[in-house]
């Protein structure tokens, strides 16, 4: 594995070139990603019309959460890595990758990293614009951002999302079409991950349950860590759970890969 490390920057560079070959696609994607924030602003503005706080949030702190969520999504959410892996397995293009002296997980990891870097660059302008526009109408609480706790949680989120994506995609060894499975997990990630609303708006019993599932550590935990709303002990426990889930899915992906390869057959060049 160590022998293959020098090849990773090349894979990363190829990944970047692939992403920027379709610049407009990326720019559009980044532009559209700002839309939910705009909708949240209008909707929650109406909710807060007669109230100063909803749960532990003011309008400013809630919109800061949604704005930070945009950054979390840019940095850690896979684009179409799941469908790419599925295609490689289904159409047999995996053959050429298997011949290379490079572990598949590392190869995909380098491409994932390249995709995230490219997307971050493309998303930077619309996200920054959103921050500026929103801060003009609502007092966003950007002063309380906690990068010290937020960055490790962001890294954990990227690792968790990558490993979960890897697990889901590798089911292509057994399933013909994994898109339904992927969209089903997306819906769980959106609801139980704190993408639609911060999880601490849930009733306390449901909030407790959400903390034991992996989804909370994909979006809610890194966003809450960046917003600085977690106590030190809650952050430490969250980080431990986040990296444990990431490790669990990485090991599961390794098991799936080994089992899948035994089943995999491809003909032709």
């Amino acid at each position: 594995m160590i022998d293959s490390l020098p090849a990773l920057p090349t894979v990363f560079s190829i990944g970047l070139q692939r992403q920027f070959a379709y610049r407009w696609n990326y720019l559009l994607r980044a532009l559209f990603s700002a839309m939910p924030l705009l909708v949240s602003w209008v909707f929650w503005g109406a909710v807060f019309q007669d109230k100063k706080t909803v749960g532990p949030y003011t309008l400013g702190s809630l919109l800061t959460y949604y704005a930070v969520l945009l950054v979390v999504e840019s940095v850690s959410s896979p684009a179409d890595d799941d469908f790419q892996i599925s295609r490689e397995i289904r159409e047999g293009s995996l053959n050429s990758i298997l011949l290379r002296p490079l572990p598949y997980g590392l190869y995909r990891g380098a491409l994932f990293l390249a995709g995230r870097c490219a997307y971050l660059v493309a998303a930077l302008i619309p996200v920054a614009l959103c921050f500026v526009l929103l801060s003009r109408v609502v007092p966003l609480e950007l002063g309380s951002l906690d990068l010290g706790r937020g960055l490790p949680a962001l890294l954990g989120s990227a690792l968790l999302q990558f490993s979960l994506t890897l697990c889901l995609s590798l089911t292509s060894f057994w399933l013909l079409d994994i898109s339904a499975l992927i969209f089903l997990v997306y819906s769980l990630e959106f609801l139980a991950g704190g993408h639609v609303f911060p999880l601490d708006l849930l009733p306390p019993s449901l909030f407790q349950i959400s903390q034991f599932l992996p989804f909370a550590y994909e979006y809610w935990f890194p966003a809450a860590s960046l917003c600085g709303t977690l106590s030190h002990s809650a952050w430490l426990i969250g980080l431990a759970r986040q990296f444990s889930w990431a490790l669990f899915f990485l090991l599961l992906a390794k098991t799936l890969w080994q089992a899948g390869l035994k089943k995999y057959t491809a003909a032709g060049g």
């Binding site: 696609n25 532009l31 559209f32 839309m35 909708v39 503005g45």
Partner: peptide, 23 residues
Amino acid sequence: IQAESVLLGYYSIFQVARLPREA
């Protein structure tokens, strides 16, 4: 050339339709 993002755009923009107009 590659306009697959438009579907994401459609879903993103149509979130507006769920808002009460008075909001």
